[in-house]
Design a protein around this nucleic acid. Structure first.
Lengths: 201, 201, 201, 201
DNA sequence: ATATAAACGAGACGGTACGTCCCGTCTTTCG
DNA sequence: CGAAAGACGGGACGTACCGTCTCGTTTATAT
């Protein structure tokens, strides 16, 4: 039933070339970081990478999806190491997160998300892998702390996670105040206050 | 300097017509709400409004600024009435805010902000009037509560305000979870917990 | 030269399939007659016929040659039956010719010729088999009449043949006047006048 | 009523620039004569002329129409001077015509006609001004000879004109025999034979 | 009244990029 | 080992908007 799907999926014809894909992605990434989201055009990627426009369109539906793919391929999202307690692990994650976002790349990520078709599969993958991954890490860290008996299980974990991770995104995009390490620390302090308080509720 | 500047600055020639301005703004608003941010082009606004392209460019530098102007002209941002206590006033503001943002217009606002040149004067005005106005209202509500002796003055008010208002924007833009009234209530509950706790710290 | 060439000529490997050739030709013919010369692309023929592009390219150098091959394979050029006198045989040939050309296919023939590389072997074959075949038939009919003593041998037979057959092609391509049976008759009348006059000259 | 149409046809807006039109036409003509019809692309004309693609498309619907316009603008079609008798005037016209067509430009004209949409206004203008103009001149020359009493009025003038002018076009396009001065002379001889014979009929 | 001048609509301009089509070639697997 | 399948680089297509620039017209203040 299920095991004959993958192995015998013998593809006829010339297989897609990973080389072309990768050249396009690398070029897109370079443009994104050096010139910004508004300059990332299919035309430019084709011209600089040597990959033809039709081939690019065979792989991604438009420039936004290519941008998201390039940002996803970029190994730069902090994954959050397990620490001995919530304060430590959350703190180090948040500091890494703020550092990662307070760059050109951070703003490009936000722009890509904002410009994307919210229903597209690529957008959903991007959201999960890039925007929400640190939020999920946060959920894991809290879960571990609960398991260790360090804190009680919070009642409305989703709202809590939003309150912790949304401000990073907010400062990045709105730009009313700096996205720096003092802010990260202040955020973690407040997050811990919420967590220690959210017992039975 | 000289006396003919401000008072008698009687301009020669035909004065700018507020009619043209308003027609363009109304058309922009309609396109924004019915077809989305991506379809708001100067060309389309000129064609539908009967206002010529040069006239539009005389008033706004580009399509994004026109969009922001149209969204600012729209009388839909909740201003937050003064209540008898923080819980009540914050609650009613947040419910109004969530209601206002959970619409097509909300998403267009986010898109406009994300696509804008962050240094432009129009962008700054838009930020202050549309994105940050509820945050400022929140600052006022907290200040009043402190004045009433209801709560202690929080140490890191900026981080607190971000934690309260960023999640609305975050859910709107990221779309991972619904932006609804239960969320508004949950958010207010947690905000109050933070406020009641943020004494001297 | 060596004995293994012609007689045993056992070709190694899979032999070229006449099926593929014929499917491509039939599909090309259909496109030519139903959608016109401009829509006859290798891509389209490959897609509809099930014959792959490389196979088509193995048989014909480009779309124009495929078109000419398809038009040549079409059994529709009138061959001109021998009559008892020039008037009769020429008349019936010209009526058949006009009828054959006054169709979609006639126009496609002219387009194919005009678009072709005039030096290509395929073009030369096409010219001889499709465009000039009736002219050659005309030459034979005149020769037979001379042999019968019906008319004298004309001095400048080539110019004469052009004057008789060129107008059909001319009306087809230029389209200034209809290509119909009255025209065929008028043409034959004038041709006979020329022939009866072209004695010693 | 009628006299206020043309003069007061006050055009609003920026007037089309004849400069742009002419630059495009000149460039198209150059490509046509030096590189052939197949290399005349809008892209190439835009690149070489400095006129933008949209402007080219505002003036001509596609490359074929641009080609026809360029060929029409070219002052190279022989107009046929009035001679003292039909033999002379027809002879000099035909010699000029053959000379004019036996060039690169001649073949480009034929190609342009063959590739064009036969219903387009541009195609009709092209036909009348370029392909049929010598035929119309021939009609005039014959008419003048009749008026002078030199020959009788032929019965089927349309067929006659086709027989005289079609062979030039035919040899040009089919290429089976050379398009040279001996051919021109031979053609005129036969034409005169037809004309002198076509009395009452 | 009559200049004078600014803002207006209309619309063409040079540009950039779009997304698509088709070309002719190349690479892989199947019969 | 030829045929089918199908991805590839390349080039041109025709379109959409951009932001700028004449034009001729309209509407106001300043003479």
């Amino acid at each position: 039933m299920s095991q004959d799907e993958s192995p015998s999926a013998r593809l006829r014809g010339r297989p897609p070339s990973p080389e072309a894909r990768n050249k396009a992605l690398r070029t897109a990434r370079d443009i994104l970081l050096n010139e910004g989201f508004g300059r990332l055009t299919i035309e430019a990627v084709a011209a600089r990478s040597g990959v033809s426009k039709p081939t690019i369109y065979r792989n991604w539906a438009n420039a936004v999806e290519l941008a998201m793919a390039a940002l996803m391929a970029d190994p730069a999202t902090p994954s959050g190491k397990a620490g001995e307690n919530v304060a430590g692990s959350l703190g180090s994650q948040m500091r890494a997160l703020v550092t990662a976002f307070a760059t050109t790349r951070g703003r490009q990520i936000a722009l890509a998300l904002a410009s994307s078709d919210p229903e597209s599969e690529m957008t959903k993958a991007f959201r999960n892998r890039v925007i929400l991954s640190s939020r999920e890490t946060g959920r894991r860290l809290v879960g571990e702390a609960v398991a260790r008996g360090e804190i009680a299980a919070p009642a409305d974990i989703e709202t809590l996670l939003d309150m912790i991770y949304a401000p990073v995104f907010y400062r990045l995009l709105v730009g009313h105040l700096p996205l720096d390490l003092p802010f990260a620390d202040s955020l973690v302090t407040r997050a811990l206050a919420l967590l220690s308080q959210s017992d039975g509720l």
